[in-house]
Design a protein around this nucleic acid. Structure first.
Lengths: 343, 343
DNA sequence: TATATTTGCGCAAACGTTTGTGCGGTTAAC
DNA sequence: GTTAACCGCACAAACGTTTGCGCAAATATA
């Protein structure tokens, strides 16, 4: 049942090399006669032979496989990314090994080691941890690496990411333009580039508008729980914000829970802008105003760049930040001018 | 930089076999002296050797890899499944190759062929298409297969799925118990087992309550678009339902869009129950009443069964249906008794 | 007819492991 | 002082491919 070149060669009474050459499409290159070639192909069809990609991988030192490391597939943002990457790789005849690193640096490093052991031809990663050294070493010595979503500040590793600064900035400006001044920002893990860039955008916008006194950045995780906790603390404080800028879809769900418990109406009592975009957000109460990331474009581009690097290692390292977009919902209201002027 | 047994053996002045035996933990089995063993291990650490899993795979005819085929990673239901499967496999020292079949039978079959070529040690699949023959053949001749979520009616292939019949039945009974009689069901792809079982549950419940005259099953795809279209048609009809039973999260989003456009209030004007459960549904307008599937349990169990079959091929084929749960939201209202009695 | 070229294909090494077998040397048994 | 048992390791084949090289026969050239 498990056919291989040898068994077919034996049956045909010819050598393995001839069979191999025919089936790998090198018949004329090696001057195999059309008749022989046809016989081989027929036999291959007959016993529906499929080559062992393991053996091929060993011999060719190419596995036609790429590795994908993501922090959490349960996050629909990364799930969509994974879907696109897998499909794009498939289009090119490559299969994808996915590793869910669970936001854990050890698991991440382990995963990279696994991929190297498996001799993948390229690695796509949203890294965990702050130290680029390991990945840089892998990239230089072993196999090309392209980062996606998250990247390292001081590294030449190529990446494709959202322009998170712009996202943070635009979101904040959107709130400012509606008269809000006391705008609180609830962040995710403070160690990741996307988070820090979003915060920087928020800070810049606030500063531009001379709202330094209202600046408030809290939270420490991209999770529902974190959003809930921070929102509760905030609402219990003495000068609660008129608007919240939530840095992820998960945080937003937590915030919503807190607001609902506090019986606050959106946008009547408080306004909300969230990072990330999913169709369900149009059906929430109220539909959310949000910052959409071009997930599909990012994934497609990252794959493209990875394959370019796989083809020829000489490429200049591209570091791309794609623009996010503001998607209007109904979760942002106007504040009467002057109302918050005196803090 | 890329170390292997040979290079290390050469440097140590001993044979490859000895190095191999030490590093694969068979030192004492082959009576390698502790001193030699230590030297080898030290050298391996020094040049941080990691074995080529490709070569190992070829020699051992085991790749420590499982293949996972899913219809659409963009669906958070499958994304969560993928996450759990990947993590469970990782726990056991296996990596996972994920294939997104995009609900396409050809892509699915292709994917299975790929996995076979790559000599995965086991396959986990939510199949596309109705013909179990191919997969059965693979399962018997090549590598164990376990189905997940979707399965074949007349096949001995093991599977783990939700008890979709119960889900459909419970959902319908829930609506019936609130006085609804004219309950419309919007289905997904009519060729998949989950869909058909859910519909069967709906039909059974309706029949039990002698509501045969109100039975209405429409739609043909697990998509937002389908939900939207069918809901619109339904509302334009002459005897619109008082409740809708939507067979997936995606369909539900479409239904919501249609209802909103028609300015119908939930549950005031119309009630809604949806299959699938996500935390965001608690924050919708209104929070949805829904049927939750035990995704994580399913995935964990499926992996468990797969590994049992991988260990010893003799296992009895287990076919499991896990119970779904009704999660109460606020999208179902009471109907005044008798109101719909006369159709 | 003798030489050169081409045609069609097989040999064998290599990719990096694993593992059955066997060999020389030390130690034990008698 | 034989023979037996054991210890520590090396040899080589195998897993299923790919591919450089070369060989014999056929054909072309002179």
């Amino acid at each position: 049942m498990k056919e291989n070149l040898t068994s077919m060669a034996k049956r045909l009474g010819i050598s393995v090399s001839t069979v191999s050459r025919v089936l790998s499409g090198n018949a004329e290159k090696y001057r195999i006669s059309p008749e022989t070639a046809e016989k081989v192909k027929a036999e291959a069809r007959r016993c529906n032979y499929s080559p062992s990609l393991v053996a091929q991988g060993l011999r060719r030192q190419k596995t036609r496989t790429v590795g994908l490391l993501l922090p959490a597939l349960t996050n629909p943002y990364f799930a969509e990314m994974a879907g696109t990457v897998i499909t794009e790789c498939r289009r090119r005849g490559y299969t994808t090994i996915v590793i869910d690193t669970m936001e854990d640096t050890a698991t991440f490093n382990d995963g990279v080691a696994q991929l190297v052991s498996r001799q993948v031809d390229g690695i796509l990663a949203a890294p965990c941890g702050q130290d680029p050294k390991f990945l840089e070493k892998v990239d230089i010595d072993i196999v090309p690496v392209v980062l996606i979503d998250r990247y390292y500040e001081n590294s030449a590793l190529p990446f494709v990411s959202t322009n998170n600064f712009k996202g943070g900035y635009d979101a904040t400006r959107f709130l400012l333009s509606h008269g809000h001044r006391n705008i609180a920002c609830i962040q995710g893990t403070p160690l990741s580039t996307p988070n820090n860039e979003r915060v920087r955008g928020y800070l810049d916008a606030m500063d531009e508008e001379r709202c330094g006194e209202f600046i408030s950045v809290t939270g420490n995780e991209f999770s529902i729980q974190n959003g809930y906790t921070e929102a509760r603390i905030m609402l219990a404080g003495e000068n609660p914000p008129s608007a919240i800028f939530s840095l992820s879809n998960t945080i937003t769900l937590g915030v919503l829970k807190a607001l609902r418990e506090a019986k606050l109406r959106i946008p009547g009592d408080i306004s909300l802008v969230s990072f990330d975009n999913y169709s369900y957000m149009d059906y929430m109460d109220p539909p959310l105003t949000r910052i959409g990331q071009p997930v599909e474009d990012m994934a497609t581009l990252a794959v493209k760049i990875l394959f370019e690097r796989m083809d020829s290692r000489g490429q200049a390292s591209s570091q791309l930040k794609l623009s996010p977009s503001v998607i209007s919902g109904e979760s942002v209201g106007f504040v009467k001018p002057g109302r918050q002027a005196g803090a």
